[in-house]
């Protein structure tokens, strides 16, 4: 039986009717048409479906939509579009950390959750956070460099 849930997605209160077996990634993509979040392995081993829920990076493929009642969710759509990129997005482009781009939303949301909680992580902390994401084409060195650049440029700005 479908249940109506209200959740805050990217600052906007949204109401959807979902079956209990609907995962958050499917609700975002199919019910809310927010297709920036990708679905891949479905078993928590690639990090592609990462969104930020109440400040923490979580896997939307292993989260039931009904469990998100009243929660606050941030997806890649909140970060920026072609007119105004988020510093992480720009840094990923500058460092060649995007190739096919499929894993990028997940990696960037993971990095954002890290930087929101810890604006100046060291290399180990960046690697530890990004260890839950999986890029099959451009490799992990460049994603780490892209995140490190944002962490360092923030510091210089201060």
């Amino acid at each position: 039986m479908k249940k109506i849930i209200a959740l805050n997605v990217n600052g906007e209160l949204r109401e959807i009717a979902v079956n209990p077996w609907r995962t958050l990634v499917d609700a975002l993509r199919e019910d809310l048409r927010l297709t920036g979040t990708k679905r891949a392995c479905g078993q928590g081993s690639c990090g592609v479906c990462t969104v930020i829920m109440d400040g923490k990076a979580i896997l939307s493929c292993l989260t039931l939509a009904v469990e998100c009642e009243g929660r606050s969710i941030t997806t890649i759509e909140a970060l920026g579009g072609p007119d105004g990129l988020h510093p992480l997005q720009q840094s990923f482009i500058d460092h060649g950390a995007v190739q096919c781009g499929f894993c990028t939303p997940g990696v960037i949301m993971t990095a954002k959750a890290l930087l929101d909680g810890n604006p100046h992580p060291d290399e180990e902390e960046i690697k530890d956070a990004l260890a839950g994401t999986y890029c099959r084409c451009t490799g992990h060195i460049k994603t780490v460099e892209a995140v490190r650049h944002v962490a360092q440029s923030d510091r210089e700005a201060e």
């Binding site: 928590g44 990090g47 990462t50 923490k56 990076a57 979580i58 896997l59 292993l62 989260t63 993971t110 959750a113 890290l114 530890d128 956070a129 260890a131 839950g132 994401t133």
Partner: peptide, 9 residues
């Protein structure tokens, strides 16, 4: 255990 994502959940 797992990754940051997994440990958050």
């Amino acid at each position: 255990v797992g990754s940051v994502h997994v440990r958050n959940m």
